[in-house]
Design a protein around this nucleic acid. Structure first.
Ligand code: FES
Ligand code: FES
Lengths: 141, 141
DNA sequence: ATAAACCTGACTAAAATAGTCAAGTATCTT
DNA sequence: AAGATACTTGACTATTTTAGTCAGGTTTAT
Protein backbone atom coordinates (compact mmCIF):
# COMPACT_ATOMS: atom_id res chain seq x y z
CA UNK A 1 0.00 0.00 0.00
CA UNK A 2 1.63 3.16 -1.16
CA UNK A 3 0.75 6.79 -0.89
CA UNK A 4 0.37 8.47 -4.26
CA UNK A 5 2.40 11.47 -5.29
CA UNK A 6 -0.69 13.41 -6.10
CA UNK A 7 -1.87 13.26 -2.53
CA UNK A 8 1.54 14.04 -1.13
CA UNK A 9 2.02 16.95 -3.49
CA UNK A 10 -1.39 18.38 -2.73
CA UNK A 11 -0.69 18.50 0.98
CA UNK A 12 2.83 19.72 0.49
CA UNK A 13 1.73 22.53 -1.77
CA UNK A 14 -1.00 23.60 0.60
CA UNK A 15 1.33 23.72 3.56
CA UNK A 16 3.63 25.90 1.51
CA UNK A 17 0.73 28.09 0.48
CA UNK A 18 -0.63 28.36 3.98
CA UNK A 19 2.60 29.80 5.26
CA UNK A 20 2.35 32.83 2.99
CA UNK A 21 -1.37 32.98 2.74
CA UNK A 22 -1.90 35.99 4.99
CA UNK A 23 0.21 38.23 2.84
CA UNK A 24 -0.31 37.63 -0.86
CA UNK A 25 -1.62 35.13 -3.34
CA UNK A 26 1.00 32.49 -3.92
CA UNK A 27 1.81 31.55 -7.48
CA UNK A 28 2.16 27.95 -8.52
CA UNK A 29 5.49 28.86 -10.04
CA UNK A 30 6.85 29.70 -6.61
CA UNK A 31 5.50 26.54 -5.09
CA UNK A 32 6.92 24.57 -7.95
CA UNK A 33 10.37 26.02 -7.37
CA UNK A 34 10.33 25.79 -3.60
CA UNK A 35 8.92 22.28 -3.39
CA UNK A 36 10.36 20.79 -6.54
CA UNK A 37 7.05 19.80 -8.09
CA UNK A 38 6.34 20.07 -11.80
CA UNK A 39 4.34 23.20 -12.60
CA UNK A 40 2.05 21.40 -15.01
CA UNK A 41 1.27 18.78 -12.45
CA UNK A 42 0.56 21.38 -9.81
CA UNK A 43 -1.93 22.98 -12.17
CA UNK A 44 -3.86 19.75 -12.40
CA UNK A 45 -3.88 19.43 -8.66
CA UNK A 46 -4.94 23.00 -7.96
CA UNK A 47 -7.69 22.79 -10.50
CA UNK A 48 -9.25 20.12 -8.30
CA UNK A 49 -8.56 22.00 -5.11
CA UNK A 50 -10.31 25.01 -6.55
CA UNK A 51 -13.35 23.06 -7.70
CA UNK A 52 -13.62 21.70 -4.19
CA UNK A 53 -13.45 25.21 -2.74
CA UNK A 54 -10.31 24.65 -0.78
CA UNK A 55 -8.47 27.44 -2.56
CA UNK A 56 -9.47 30.47 -4.56
CA UNK A 57 -7.64 31.70 -7.60
CA UNK A 58 -6.55 35.24 -8.38
CA UNK A 59 -5.81 35.70 -12.03
CA UNK A 60 -3.38 38.02 -13.73
CA UNK A 61 0.03 39.31 -12.77
CA UNK A 62 0.77 39.02 -9.08
CA UNK A 63 -1.99 36.46 -9.02
CA UNK A 64 -1.89 33.04 -7.54
CA UNK A 65 -3.91 31.04 -5.08
CA UNK A 66 -5.30 31.83 -1.65
CA UNK A 67 -6.88 29.54 0.90
CA UNK A 68 -10.64 29.65 0.78
CA UNK A 69 -11.07 28.85 4.47
CA UNK A 70 -9.11 29.17 7.66
CA UNK A 71 -6.22 26.74 7.80
CA UNK A 72 -7.70 25.32 10.94
CA UNK A 73 -10.86 24.37 9.11
CA UNK A 74 -9.14 22.54 6.29
CA UNK A 75 -8.69 18.94 7.31
CA UNK A 76 -6.51 16.43 5.59
CA UNK A 77 -9.65 14.55 4.66
CA UNK A 78 -10.87 17.51 2.64
CA UNK A 79 -7.61 17.79 0.76
CA UNK A 80 -7.33 14.14 -0.10
CA UNK A 81 -10.96 13.91 -1.09
CA UNK A 82 -10.51 16.87 -3.38
CA UNK A 83 -7.71 15.26 -5.34
CA UNK A 84 -9.45 11.88 -5.44
CA UNK A 85 -7.06 10.19 -3.09
CA UNK A 86 -9.52 8.76 -0.65
CA UNK A 87 -8.50 5.61 1.12
CA UNK A 88 -10.32 2.66 -0.26
CA UNK A 89 -9.90 -0.59 1.58
CA UNK A 90 -12.93 -2.73 0.82
CA UNK A 91 -13.07 -3.92 -2.73
CA UNK A 92 -16.73 -4.79 -2.93
CA UNK A 93 -19.32 -2.32 -4.11
CA UNK A 94 -22.35 -2.08 -1.92
CA UNK A 95 -24.68 -1.03 -4.73
CA UNK A 96 -24.18 -4.42 -6.36
CA UNK A 97 -25.24 -6.67 -3.57
CA UNK A 98 -22.15 -8.77 -3.90
CA UNK A 99 -18.98 -9.34 -1.94
CA UNK A 100 -15.56 -8.90 -3.50
CA UNK A 101 -15.62 -12.63 -4.22
CA UNK A 102 -18.71 -12.31 -6.40
CA UNK A 103 -20.80 -14.16 -3.86
CA UNK A 104 -23.84 -12.64 -2.20
CA UNK A 105 -22.24 -12.75 1.26
CA UNK A 106 -19.41 -10.57 2.40
CA UNK A 107 -15.94 -12.05 2.29
CA UNK A 108 -14.13 -13.18 5.42
CA UNK A 109 -12.17 -9.97 5.68
CA UNK A 110 -14.71 -7.33 4.78
CA UNK A 111 -15.20 -6.17 8.35
CA UNK A 112 -11.51 -5.94 8.93
CA UNK A 113 -10.90 -3.59 6.03
CA UNK A 114 -13.87 -1.55 6.97
CA UNK A 115 -12.45 -1.06 10.44
CA UNK A 116 -9.11 -0.13 8.95
CA UNK A 117 -10.69 2.48 6.75
CA UNK A 118 -12.35 4.06 9.75
CA UNK A 119 -9.09 3.98 11.64
CA UNK A 120 -7.22 5.78 8.89
CA UNK A 121 -9.95 8.30 8.28
CA UNK A 122 -9.92 9.20 11.95
CA UNK A 123 -6.37 10.29 11.51
CA UNK A 124 -7.16 12.36 8.45
CA UNK A 125 -10.20 13.93 10.06
CA UNK A 126 -8.22 15.20 13.00
CA UNK A 127 -5.27 16.76 11.24
CA UNK A 128 -5.81 20.26 9.94
CA UNK A 129 -3.62 22.31 7.68
CA UNK A 130 -2.90 24.56 10.62
CA UNK A 131 -1.51 21.63 12.58
CA UNK A 132 0.86 20.92 9.76
CA UNK A 133 2.10 24.46 9.43
CA UNK A 134 2.56 24.67 13.16
CA UNK A 135 4.41 21.41 13.29
CA UNK A 136 6.74 22.76 10.69
CA UNK A 137 7.46 26.00 12.50
CA UNK A 138 8.20 24.05 15.65
CA UNK A 139 10.78 21.96 13.94
CA UNK A 140 12.45 25.02 12.52
CA UNK A 141 13.15 26.42 16.01
CA UNK B 1 -4.65 4.82 -1.73
CA UNK B 2 -5.90 1.36 -2.40
CA UNK B 3 -5.39 -1.98 -0.77
CA UNK B 4 -3.86 -4.55 -3.06
CA UNK B 5 -5.48 -7.85 -3.87
CA UNK B 6 -2.41 -9.72 -2.84
CA UNK B 7 -2.66 -8.45 0.71
CA UNK B 8 -6.38 -9.03 0.88
CA UNK B 9 -6.09 -12.53 -0.53
CA UNK B 10 -3.30 -13.44 1.86
CA UNK B 11 -5.38 -12.53 4.87
CA UNK B 12 -8.52 -14.08 3.47
CA UNK B 13 -6.76 -17.34 2.73
CA UNK B 14 -5.20 -17.49 6.16
CA UNK B 15 -8.49 -16.90 7.91
CA UNK B 16 -9.93 -19.74 5.89
CA UNK B 17 -6.96 -21.94 6.71
CA UNK B 18 -7.05 -21.08 10.39
CA UNK B 19 -10.61 -22.33 10.69
CA UNK B 20 -9.65 -25.85 9.67
CA UNK B 21 -6.14 -25.81 10.91
CA UNK B 22 -6.63 -28.03 13.94
CA UNK B 23 -7.84 -30.95 11.91
CA UNK B 24 -5.94 -31.42 8.69
CA UNK B 25 -3.64 -29.65 6.29
CA UNK B 26 -5.72 -27.44 4.04
CA UNK B 27 -5.08 -27.63 0.32
CA UNK B 28 -4.83 -24.52 -1.77
CA UNK B 29 -7.34 -26.03 -4.10
CA UNK B 30 -9.96 -25.96 -1.35
CA UNK B 31 -9.15 -22.40 -0.42
CA UNK B 32 -9.28 -21.45 -4.05
CA UNK B 33 -12.75 -22.90 -4.41
CA UNK B 34 -14.13 -21.56 -1.16
CA UNK B 35 -12.75 -18.06 -1.48
CA UNK B 36 -12.80 -17.64 -5.22
CA UNK B 37 -9.10 -16.93 -5.61
CA UNK B 38 -7.06 -18.23 -8.52
CA UNK B 39 -5.06 -21.31 -7.54
CA UNK B 40 -1.93 -20.14 -9.32
CA UNK B 41 -2.07 -16.84 -7.56
CA UNK B 42 -2.53 -18.52 -4.21
CA UNK B 43 0.59 -20.53 -4.83
CA UNK B 44 2.62 -17.39 -5.28
CA UNK B 45 1.20 -16.00 -2.09
CA UNK B 46 1.76 -19.13 -0.02
CA UNK B 47 5.29 -19.46 -1.27
CA UNK B 48 6.00 -16.17 0.47
CA UNK B 49 4.04 -17.09 3.56
CA UNK B 50 6.07 -20.25 3.84
CA UNK B 51 9.41 -18.50 3.41
CA UNK B 52 8.36 -16.17 6.19
CA UNK B 53 7.49 -19.10 8.43
CA UNK B 54 3.87 -18.23 8.79
CA UNK B 55 2.73 -21.56 7.36
CA UNK B 56 4.27 -24.95 6.86
CA UNK B 57 3.69 -27.12 3.85
CA UNK B 58 2.82 -30.79 3.78
CA UNK B 59 3.59 -32.32 0.42
CA UNK B 60 1.95 -35.17 -1.36
CA UNK B 61 -1.61 -36.38 -1.54
CA UNK B 62 -3.75 -35.18 1.34
CA UNK B 63 -1.13 -32.49 1.80
CA UNK B 64 -1.70 -28.80 2.12
CA UNK B 65 -0.69 -26.05 4.46
CA UNK B 66 -0.75 -25.72 8.23
CA UNK B 67 -0.19 -22.68 10.41
CA UNK B 68 3.33 -22.54 11.75
CA UNK B 69 2.35 -20.70 14.93
CA UNK B 70 -0.70 -20.22 17.06
CA UNK B 71 -3.28 -18.04 15.36
CA UNK B 72 -3.06 -15.69 18.30
CA UNK B 73 0.61 -15.09 17.62
CA UNK B 74 0.21 -14.27 13.94
CA UNK B 75 -0.42 -10.58 13.61
CA UNK B 76 -1.66 -8.82 10.53
CA UNK B 77 1.69 -7.09 10.35
CA UNK B 78 3.42 -10.42 9.90
CA UNK B 79 1.13 -11.44 7.11
CA UNK B 80 1.38 -8.23 5.17
CA UNK B 81 5.13 -8.05 5.61
CA UNK B 82 5.45 -11.56 4.29
CA UNK B 83 3.69 -10.80 1.04
CA UNK B 84 5.50 -7.48 0.64
CA UNK B 85 2.48 -5.36 1.29
CA UNK B 86 3.92 -3.16 3.94
CA UNK B 87 2.45 0.30 4.18
CA UNK B 88 4.84 2.82 2.78
CA UNK B 89 3.94 6.42 3.30
CA UNK B 90 7.17 8.39 3.15
CA UNK B 91 8.71 8.48 -0.26
CA UNK B 92 12.23 9.46 0.71
CA UNK B 93 14.91 6.89 1.36
CA UNK B 94 16.85 7.45 4.51
CA UNK B 95 20.00 5.75 3.25
CA UNK B 96 20.38 8.45 0.61
CA UNK B 97 20.46 11.50 2.80
CA UNK B 98 17.87 13.25 0.71
CA UNK B 99 14.24 14.18 1.08
CA UNK B 100 11.62 13.14 -1.43
CA UNK B 101 12.19 16.48 -3.13
CA UNK B 102 15.84 15.71 -3.80
CA UNK B 103 16.96 18.33 -1.31
CA UNK B 104 19.05 17.52 1.76
CA UNK B 105 16.27 18.57 4.14
CA UNK B 106 13.08 16.67 4.70
CA UNK B 107 10.00 17.87 2.87
CA UNK B 108 7.22 19.77 4.62
CA UNK B 109 5.11 16.67 5.02
CA UNK B 110 7.63 14.03 5.96
CA UNK B 111 6.65 14.00 9.62
CA UNK B 112 3.01 13.74 8.79
CA UNK B 113 3.38 10.62 6.70
CA UNK B 114 5.64 9.12 9.25
CA UNK B 115 2.98 9.61 11.90
CA UNK B 116 0.40 8.09 9.60
CA UNK B 117 2.54 5.06 9.04
CA UNK B 118 2.83 4.53 12.77
CA UNK B 119 -0.89 4.97 13.17
CA UNK B 120 -1.68 2.33 10.56
CA UNK B 121 0.92 -0.09 11.81
CA UNK B 122 -0.53 0.14 15.29
CA UNK B 123 -3.72 -1.25 13.88
CA UNK B 124 -1.94 -4.08 12.11
CA UNK B 125 0.16 -4.91 15.13
CA UNK B 126 -2.85 -5.39 17.32
CA UNK B 127 -4.99 -7.60 15.12
CA UNK B 128 -4.19 -11.26 15.19
CA UNK B 129 -5.43 -14.03 12.99
CA UNK B 130 -7.33 -15.37 15.96
CA UNK B 131 -9.21 -12.10 16.30
CA UNK B 132 -10.29 -12.38 12.70
CA UNK B 133 -11.48 -15.94 12.98
CA UNK B 134 -13.35 -15.12 16.15
CA UNK B 135 -14.92 -12.06 14.61
CA UNK B 136 -16.14 -14.27 11.83
CA UNK B 137 -17.65 -16.89 14.07
CA UNK B 138 -19.43 -14.15 16.01
CA UNK B 139 -21.06 -12.84 12.90
CA UNK B 140 -22.22 -16.28 11.92
CA UNK B 141 -24.25 -16.64 15.14
C1' DA C 1 1.83 -46.31 -11.07
C1' DT C 2 -0.95 -42.55 -10.53
C1' DA C 3 -3.15 -38.75 -8.78
C1' DA C 4 -3.16 -34.99 -5.51
C1' DA C 5 -0.82 -31.32 -4.06
C1' DC C 6 3.16 -28.46 -3.45
C1' DC C 7 7.03 -25.66 -5.97
C1' DT C 8 9.32 -22.32 -9.11
C1' DG C 9 10.24 -18.98 -12.43
C1' DA C 10 9.07 -16.63 -16.35
C1' DC C 11 5.76 -14.26 -18.80
C1' DT C 12 1.89 -10.84 -19.91
C1' DA C 13 -2.37 -8.00 -20.18
C1' DA C 14 -4.48 -4.40 -18.04
C1' DA C 15 -4.80 -0.71 -15.01
C1' DA C 16 -3.01 3.10 -12.43
C1' DT C 17 0.36 6.68 -11.89
C1' DA C 18 2.95 10.53 -12.83
C1' DG C 19 3.56 13.31 -15.42
C1' DT C 20 4.00 16.32 -20.27
C1' DC C 21 2.25 19.23 -23.91
C1' DA C 22 -0.46 22.51 -26.33
C1' DA C 23 -3.44 26.10 -26.69
C1' DG C 24 -5.78 28.98 -24.60
C1' DT C 25 -7.92 33.31 -21.14
C1' DA C 26 -7.61 36.94 -17.58
C1' DT C 27 -5.33 40.69 -15.32
C1' DC C 28 -1.75 43.82 -13.99
C1' DT C 29 2.02 46.97 -15.17
C1' DT C 30 4.00 50.26 -17.99
C1' DA D 1 -2.01 49.11 -26.33
C1' DA D 2 1.66 45.78 -25.44
C1' DG D 3 3.83 42.52 -22.82
C1' DA D 4 4.35 39.64 -19.02
C1' DT D 5 2.61 36.86 -15.53
C1' DA D 6 -0.29 33.50 -14.06
C1' DC D 7 -4.45 30.79 -14.13
C1' DT D 8 -7.41 27.16 -17.21
C1' DT D 9 -8.41 23.13 -19.76
C1' DG D 10 -8.09 18.92 -22.02
C1' DA D 11 -5.69 15.59 -24.36
C1' DC D 12 -1.84 12.72 -24.63
C1' DT D 13 1.98 9.37 -23.17
C1' DA D 14 5.64 6.78 -20.85
C1' DT D 15 6.47 4.15 -16.91
C1' DT D 16 5.36 1.30 -13.25
C1' DT D 17 2.53 -1.65 -10.66
C1' DT D 18 -0.85 -5.04 -10.26
C1' DA D 19 -3.01 -9.14 -10.89
C1' DG D 20 -2.77 -12.54 -12.59
C1' DT D 21 -1.49 -16.84 -16.20
C1' DC D 22 1.37 -20.56 -17.90
C1' DA D 23 4.54 -24.24 -18.16
C1' DG D 24 7.08 -27.24 -16.20
C1' DG D 25 8.61 -29.40 -12.52
C1' DT D 26 8.98 -32.46 -7.45
C1' DT D 27 7.03 -34.99 -3.47
C1' DT D 28 4.25 -38.44 -1.26
C1' DA D 29 -0.04 -41.24 0.03
C1' DT D 30 -2.59 -44.94 -1.73
S1 FES E 1 -14.18 -6.58 0.94
FE1 FES E 1 -16.35 -6.49 1.02
S2 FES E 1 -16.80 -8.53 0.54
FE2 FES E 1 -14.67 -8.63 0.46
S1 FES F 1 8.55 12.09 2.62
FE1 FES F 1 10.49 12.15 3.52
S2 FES F 1 11.25 13.98 2.69
FE2 FES F 1 9.30 13.92 1.79
Amino acid sequence: MKLSSKGRYAVMALVDLARFNEINPVSLRDISLRQGISLDYLEQIFSKLRKNEIVQSVRGTQGGYVLNKKAREIKLTNILDAVDEKVKTVQCKKELKKGCNGKPTKCLTHNLWDELETHINNFFDKKSLEDLVQDNLDRRV
